[in-house]
Design a protein around this nucleic acid. Structure first.
Length: 568
RNA sequence: GCGCCCGUAGCUCAGAGGAAGAGCGGCGGCCUUCUAAGCCGUUGGUCGGGGGUUCGACUCCCUCCGGGCGCGCCA
């Protein structure tokens, strides 16, 4: 349809069709029209004022399908399309259904998405929602655009810190450990760390305990596995609430056997050299001042070592073209460094390694009236489950107040409460720091998850009462009201928003589109009755429009990892 | 000191060469009609400052200021 319009403008203005098509943009207000052609460039070539060029074009062009009217507004030539726009958009929705918003530009491409990655032995803190839900959304968005996606949870399950845990658990049986919860394990770890600050012997003991684990001591191994099981049990409970699944959960420990051969290879090829007792890769030739450390002077491996080994393993196992790593932006240098190491090794897939950084999460401490990073002034970490529970509790109270007869109220409260928290994390550009405040994140009105869910609920409610479904034969020329046209305009943009989100690894574009669709639909809903208006043809056309909204919102919410309840 | 990210309405943020926006807050309206978690009106801006490129800059470049983060044996 853009092309058809571009052809007409190109013929009238004597410019190439592709040039006209690229210049076409969406007007800021649907009242201007469906498409707009800025006349600045043309004005320059003709040495005439842009408004005159726009007016001349509007006068020269004749309205005929699919264009209903041309109009000049200042320097813009605005184009109003006829009902074939609605026919095309709503026809696509009906045909594509659950796939509306999807695309095929990713066909044949495999992408690994590395996200969430919590640490064993510690509870999932609220800030983990960022990596987990941005990653989850990207997995779903990329998949919708045709990519083969492998979601990986790279658990932090290895390292000296587990020495403290093993020391504290000495003498316990694995069964006794399994009876504990993550909070208890975390308390032991924290206590060990505290004591180590005063007594160096504690640190030595922890290091020795981890060394035993590394050597494969069966007793240590059994305790470590018990800790892992305890953690995974709790992680799974949270992932289930969030609707998050992984194709692979391979922690750092998984790569342990591959580290020594990797380092030997790097040394043999002269890529890594010894510096101050440590094994490093000098990256000054890549414009990176600090070298990448791969082995400490005490012989222990590092984060980067395991990341390199993991990347090689994934390339061998999945044959990916691209790998996305979801972490906070503070780790940018780390990724730059080890990406460069992998390039040095000559792997073709190294060019597809991408760090997808996001801003840190700041939490507003009501008592101290200040923004803090992840924990309150008193040092208490805010847990993800606490926030989810509080949000669900508030959603439940709201249901009791507004819709006491709602069936499955608890299940819906879960969907709405969790959805509010998740949407709040995804609605803004990921690189901005997130300022989290309970009253904002747990807001159920305005630009929020429940606002979108509510629009979906309203659309579903209409079909519950309609007694008929959407029909492709509906006469969409009856959708002439500005409010209906605005809805169509937003539905048209939805697949573009998903494509852009995939291209930029930026879920907020999907969230933004959902808000726009919801706003347009809430307005339409308020202004026009769908059912019982007397004219079955109008009803049929409006039902098709409402169906479009229902499908786009359901699909979009799904892409972001939110549930789309039919009642709330 | 070097590097990366961010400065847009009172607050939280969209907009990324082309017609300054939303939510919240404040003020005022709209429920016997498909869910008022909604809708409408109103209030509110030297787009951090200054240069430059351009017909045109919130958007691109330079510089300064302010905030966040990082800069070899943590992850």
């Amino acid at each position: 349809m853009r092309r058809a319009v571009a052809e007409r403008i190109a013929a009238a203005a004597h410019v190439p069709i592709t040039e006209a098509e690229e210049a076409l943009e969406y007007p800021p207000d649907p009242a201007f029209g469906d498409l707009a052609f800025p006349c600045f460039g043309l004005a320059k070539a003709r040495r005439a004022p842009p408004p005159k060029v726009a007016a001349d074009l509007a006068g020269a062009l004749v309205a005929s399908p699919p264009v209903e009217g041309w109009s000049a507004a200042g320097p813009y030539l605005n184009v109003r399309l006829d009902s074939s726009l609605a026919r095309e958009v709503l026809g696509n929705v009906l045909a594509e259904d659950a796939c509306y918003g999807g695309g095929s530009e990713g066909a044949g491409k495999t992408v690994v998405v590395d996200y969430s990655a919590p640490n064993i032995g510690k509870p999932i803190a609220f800030h983990h929602i960022r990596s987990t839900m941005i990653g989850n959304a990207l997995v779903r968005i990329l998949r919708a655009r045709g990519h083969r996606v492998v979601g990986v949870n790279h658990l932090g399950d290895w390292g000296t810190q587990f020495g403290y845990l093993l020391e504290a658990l000495a003498g316990k049986t694995p069964a006794e450990v399994r009876a504990k919860n993550v909070r208890e394990l975390s308390a032991l770890y924290v206590a060990g760390n505290e004591r180590a600050k005063k007594e160096p012997a504690v640190e030595d003991a922890a290091r020795a305990a981890f060394a035993r684990l590394e050597r494969g001591d069966p007793g240590s191994r059994a305790l470590w596995e018990a800790c892992r099981d305890v953690s995974l049990r709790e992680f799974d409970r949270i992932y289930r609430r969030l609707g998050v699944t992984f194709e692979a959960t391979t922690g750092e420990s998984f790569y342990e056997p591959r580290l020594a051969p990797l380092l030997a290879d790097l040394e043999r090829r002269g890529i890594a050299t010894t510096s101050q007792g440590a094994l490093v890769v000098d990256l000054s030739a890549d414009g990176i001042a600090t070298p990448c450390l791969l082995r400490k002077s005490d012989g222990a491996t590092l984060y980067a070592t395991r990341d390199v080994a993991a990347a090689i393993y994934r390339a061998e196992t999945y044959g990916m073209e691209q790998a996305l790593y979801l972490t906070d932006q503070g780790q940018s240098l780390h990724f730059k460094q080890w990406f460069a190491v992998v390039r040095r090794m000559g792997f073709g897939w190294a060019a597809g390694l991408v760090h997808v950084p996001f801003g840190v999460l700041l939490i507003y401490d009501e008592a101290e009236k200040e923004w803090t990073r992840g924990k309150t002034r008193s040092g208490r970490v805010v847990l993800l489950e606490e926030v989810l529970d509080e949000s669900v509790r508030r959603a439940r109270a709201l249901i009791a107040e507004k819709n006491p007869a709602l069936p499955a109220a608890d299940a819906v409260a879960e969907q709405v409460g969790v959805g509010a928290v998740v949407f709040n994390d995804l609605k803004n550009r990921r690189e901005k720091e997130v300022r989290f405040r309970f009253e904002d994140a747990l807001r159920f009105d305005g630009d929020a998850g429940p606002y979108v869910q509510n629009a979906h609920v309203r659309a579903c409610g209409i079909f519950r009462n309609a007694g008929r479904g959407p029909e492709a034969s509906a006469d969409v020329s009856l959708l002439a009201e500005p409010e209906a046209r605005a809805v169509v305009a937003q539905l048209l943009r939805f697949p573009d928003a998903v494509a852009r989100a995939a291209r930029e690894a930026e879920p907020c574009h999907v969230a933004g589109s959902l808000l726009e669709i919801s706003t347009a639909f809430h307005r339409f809903y308020h202004e026009h009755r769908v059912l019982g208006g007397g004219d079955p043809r109008v009803e049929g056309a409006r039902l098709l429009l409402v169906h479009g909204v229902r499908v786009a919102l359901r699909n979009g919410l799904g892409l972001l990892g939110l549930a789309a309840p039919e009642e709330m």
